[in-house]
Structures are given as C-alpha cells and as structure tokens.
C-alpha cells in the first residue's frame, strides 16, 4: 500500500463518514466530496469512451475508425486516473476495475449526455462538440487546483481533449457546410444532443462545497465561455445552436436513460462472468 501523501489531512483509516465542518452543520469530509466529484468525471469519460468504442469498425472511413479509437483510448485513460483516485479517496479501497465493472447502473454518475446512443454520426459529432469544448475548459481549470496529482492530470487531459475538440470542430464544419443532407442531419444531431448539455455545468451541494473550499473548481462558471465557443464554431458551420425548451438531468444522481442498462451490461459482462478472475 502506498501512503496517502496526496491527502495529508487523511486520518489513518480514511472513511466516507469522516465529518468536516465546512460552512457549519455536518457535511461529508472533503475527501468524500472529492471522491463523488471525481467519480462523476471518471464516469463521463468511461461511458463516452464506451460509446465511441461502439463505432470502431463501423465508422464512415478507415481514418475515422482510427480517429474515434484514438479518442476512445484517451477517454478510457482519463477514466482510469479518475476512478483510481476516487476509489482511494472514498475509503472503500475500490480499484478502477472494481468501480467500472462491479457497480450497478444506479451507482454510475455520468451526465446523461455521455450515454445517449451514438449510432448516428451527426449525433456523435454534436456530442463530441459539446463534451470536448466543456472538457477542455474544465480540465484547464482543474490544472490550476492545489492538488498536485489532479493538477497534473488536468493539464495532460486538457491537451489531449484539445485534439478531440479539433476533430469535432472540423467535422461540424464539414457536415454543416458539406451537402444539404449533411447540414440537415447535423442540425438534427445538435437538436438531439443539446438538451443534455446543461447537466455538465450543474452545481449541487457537493460541487458547491468543493468550490467553496477551493479544492477543485466548479464547472458552472465556465458555461458562458463554453456557450461563446460552441456558438462560434456552430455558426462557422452555417448552423445555429439550439435553444432547447427543456434540460435533461438525473445522471449525477444515478438516474439514467433506459439505454444505459444494456451499455453497462455489455461493459461488465465478461468481468462478471468470471468471479475472482484476474485479467
């Protein structure tokens, strides 16, 4: 076991029940909050990576098979860092694989955006656009946090996601300004995805405590910058950012879409078929 040099305030037996007084009243320890937050980020990366894996061998070109697998690989890499850290912080000692392969659906806390089925290339591009612009902003902010391990991760992930963002930006231009058919499909893709983007910026008590204590930044203040950037790219593509009349949420509380069950069943099937297996 490594000692918890990254969490100097940790008692010798860290546990989620440890209470810290942040803003009065009883609130979970910062470690427990941070674990919740990192699990959310990690689940976003894992579930989006899983959705992108479903494209591989089905993409419109071999180049795109390669690009989407490259992006999926980075996302799974992010998920591994984030889940590993969440497991160390929450006091359960769960590994990245315990968290990915043994939790039931209700315990996953990814934003619903990441789990939407992605069989339509325009939907995939729209989701990649929304997610990558958000993720670059968030990881850049994370790179400035006091926790050295998380800051280093944020800096690295921001650089990687910047390439994914470039990929999404280029595709929305090609599709938006390609043919009338592709422009129509891209518009429908944006409309399909946009109601699910707000959840990325949601702030609950956990997030507010973490931001107030200066542990990690909240994504909420990043929303105007995100709006500006995506609006600019979407406009260049000759399209408009949808103004949805509703906003989906629930993922952060483990309330998912019905399509999520099969995704998790597929993800966990082999792991669960071999109890006690080592891989």
């Amino acid at each position: 076991m490594t000692t918890t040099s990254d969490a100097p305030a940790n008692p010798t037996t860290p546990g989620p029940a440890v209470v810290a007084a942040v803003g009065g009243g009883t609130a979970p320890a910062p470690d427990a909050d941070l674990a919740v937050h990192l699990l959310r980020l990690g689940d976003d990366a894992l579930v989006l990576g899983q959705r992108l894996c479903q494209w591989i061998t089905r993409a419109p070109t071999v180049e795109e098979d390669l690009a989407l697998s490259n992006i999926a690989l980075d996302l799974i890499g992010h998920a591994r860092v984030l889940l590993d850290r969440a497991g160390r912080l929450d006091g359960t000692g769960r590994t990245e694989d315990d968290l990915a392969f043994t939790r039931p659906e209700r315990e996953f806390t990814n934003a619903l955006l990441t789990e939407l089925p992605g069989g339509d290339f325009a939907v995939t591009v729209a989701r990649q656009l929304a997610y990558t612009h958000y993720a670059v902003l968030y990881y850049e902010a994370l790179a400035g946090c006091a926790d050295a391990e998380l800051a280093a991760f944020g800096a690295r992930a921001a650089k990687e996601v910047a390439f994914h963002r470039l990929h999404a930006d280029r595709w929305i231009l090609r599709l938006g300004r390609g043919t009338p058919k592709s422009a129509r499909r891209m518009r429908l893709g944006l409309e399909r995805v946009w109601p699910y983007t707000g959840e990325l910026f949601d702030e609950d008590d956990v997030m507010r405590r973490l931001a107030a204590s200066g542990t990690v930044p909240s994504p909420a203040p990043l929303r105007p910058a995100w709006e500006r950037r995506v609006t600019e790219v979407v406009a260049r593509a000759g399209l408009t950012v949808p103004a949805p009349s509703w906003s989906a949420r629930g993922g952060r509380d483990g309330l998912h879409t019905e399509e999520f069950g099969p995704l998790i069943a597929e993800l966990q099937s082999v792991h669960r078929q071999f109890p006690g297996g080592t891989w």
Partner: peptide, 28 residues
Amino acid sequence: GAWLTRAPSLHRKSVLIAKVQDEAGHGL
C-alpha cells in the same frame, strides 16, 4: 473490435483499443 466494449479490465480495454487502432493504421 467486437470485444472492445466487453474487455474485462480497463487496462485490457486500452490495450485492445490501441491494437485495433494499429490495424486501421496498417490498412491505411
């Protein structure tokens, strides 16, 4: 590629994605 979504650990998943990605590259 049919096993990418079912790889039983995140390490093996990463390795398999990288391999399938290499094959696309070889094709190119």
